[in-house]
Computed example of a mutant assay.
Amino acid sequence: MSAVSPRRSATDARHTRSVILDRGVEVASVEGLEGLTIGRLAADLGMSKSGLLGHFGSKEVLQLAVIDTAAAIFGQEVPGRATDAEPGLSRLRALCAAWVSYMERGVFPGGCFFTAAVAEFDDREGPVRDAVAGMVAVWRRDLVIQIRLAVSAGELPGDTDPDQLMFELYGVMLSLNHSLRLDRDPRAGDRARRALDRLLTG
């Protein structure tokens, strides 16, 4: 019997880890990060608990890896779709359009992963809460940067408060997520676009 090469073994391990994380994102999106247990994922994937633990070691490490995976997906689906737009108002509009599309298309089966994670962990302490807060803070910062560039270029009024505008944009998107997931309102995307157009009129 021939031995498995170290390269093949490492490739198999990366593939297995990717499969675990893909399923982990799906489960956490619908049932929350606390619903993400070693036993649940092992059963879903036909693995042993010890085999799954060999990849992550603990539930917290698994949760953090799932957050990173969700962030990478969000990065592809929203900022990644706006990279061709010029910085400033054009980029900001493109980001918001991609953000609406991401929610409408149900990229995550439970709606916006981070909206759900924030609601679950906002009043807690620890590394998982910090990771969620950190991802949200980076996204808000990126929006503020584009708003400031738009103001500097004269594309938005000079008296625009970037933090206030970001707050209002974020509020529209939270409302969109709730309307899509809770109310199942087919008009929610159009309502969000109208609200965003009003906010981003120079």
Rank of each mutant, 00 (worst) to 15 (best):
S48P: 01
A117R: 10
Q146S: 14
T16H: 08
L92Q: 12
Q76A: 12
N177F: 00
R7C: 02
L36S: 08
G110Y: 03
F113E: 05
V138R: 15
R17W: 01
S18R: 14
M166P: 00
S179H: 03
P127E: 12
P6G: 11
R93V: 08
V138W: 05
I38A: 05
L199T: 06
L143G: 09
V30T: 12
R198L: 15
L143F: 05
P157G: 14
P109W: 00
S152M: 08
L149G: 08
G39C: 08
S2Y: 00
E26C: 10
T201I: 02
G158H: 06
H15W: 04
G57D: 06
R40S: 06
A71D: 14
R140F: 01
A3D: 05
F108A: 03
T160D: 10
D190H: 07
G57W: 01
A13R: 15
R181T: 09
A153K: 14
F56M: 13
Q76F: 00
A188P: 06
W99E: 15
S101C: 07
N177T: 04
F56T: 11
R81N: 08
R81S: 06
E26H: 08
A137K: 15
R148L: 09
P127H: 07
A72N: 09
A97S: 15
R124M: 13
L143Y: 08
D84H: 12
R184E: 13
A133G: 12
A85Q: 10
A188I: 07
F114D: 12
E60H: 03
D12K: 08
I67A: 13
F121T: 15
S5F: 01
A131R: 15
A28C: 06
S48W: 00
T37D: 09
A116I: 02
A94G: 09
A10V: 04
F108V: 01
A28S: 07
L21Y: 03
R7T: 07
E86I: 06
P157M: 12
T37L: 13
S58Q: 04
E155L: 09
M47Q: 11
D122M: 13
